[in-house]
């Protein structure tokens, strides 16, 4: 039986090493960091929310009650709660982030950020109504008609990546300024 003998090995080995070397050279030349592996959707969305706070300017009166903290209000049954609660204690614009589960509209009205997933959509119209005109950044997750409901930012998943929409008008109505840097990264309306 004519079997391939290891005599052909050096050339194959050489080829393998050559390709490996090529990869090595190329890889060491590249730049700019990225997270090494895939991550859980809820954690990434929470990280997005945290990042948004760096690009939003609240009106000066928004923090009068407690100037050292910034409060993120979520609903009792928020599915992303574990990931959001991990943000507790992080610093935002020189203030400490507090994550609070809220039962009543009055509690939410005292927050500076409100986050809700699509699971709470039946209640959103009513809640957003209660927050109308108040300096509360409203962020939703996978709520397609967030703008109509009065929301400002909506997170959405496209393939395996997270993207977001912004409604500047709703933000302006509440006295919030959203930086143009953030607007540049958002999905354009209609796009």
């Amino acid at each position: 039986m004519p079997l391939t003998t290891p005599s052909s090995l050096p050339s194959r080995l050489g080829l393998t090493l050559l390709l490996m070397g090529w990869w090595l050279c190329l890889s060491l030349g590249a730049a700019a960091p990225v997270f090494a592996q895939g991550a859980s959707e809820s954690q990434v969305k929470a990280a997005f929310l945290y990042n948004f706070t760096k690009f939003v300017e609240w009106p000066s009166g928004a923090f009068t009650a407690n100037p050292d903290t910034i409060t993120l209000g979520i609903l009792e049954r928020e599915p992303l709660a574990p990931a959001l609660e991990a943000l507790q204690g992080k610093e935002v614009q020189g203030r400490k982030l507090v994550v609070r589960r809220c039962r009543h509209h009055e509690e939410l009205q005292k927050c500076q950020i409100f986050f809700a997933s699509a699971a709470e959509k039946p209640r959103l119209r009513e809640i957003m109504g209660a927050l109308q005109g108040l300096p509360v950044l409203t962020v939703t997750d996978e709520v397609d008609d967030f703008a109509r409901l009065g929301g400002m930012i909506n997170l959405t998943r496209l393939d395996d990546k997270i993207r977001f929409h912004i409604d500047v008008n709703n933000a302006a109505k509440s006295g919030l300024k959203i930086s143009s840097q953030l607007l540049k990264l958002a999905i354009r309306p209609g796009g």
Partner: peptide, 30 residues
Amino acid sequence: AAPPQDLTELSLQELMNISVYGASKFEQKL
């Protein structure tokens, strides 16, 4: 290097490049 585990330390541009996955039995960090 910066620890890769803490996602909040990444910029928005970096976050937009992360592939995410849904929930599963295996949710541990590698």
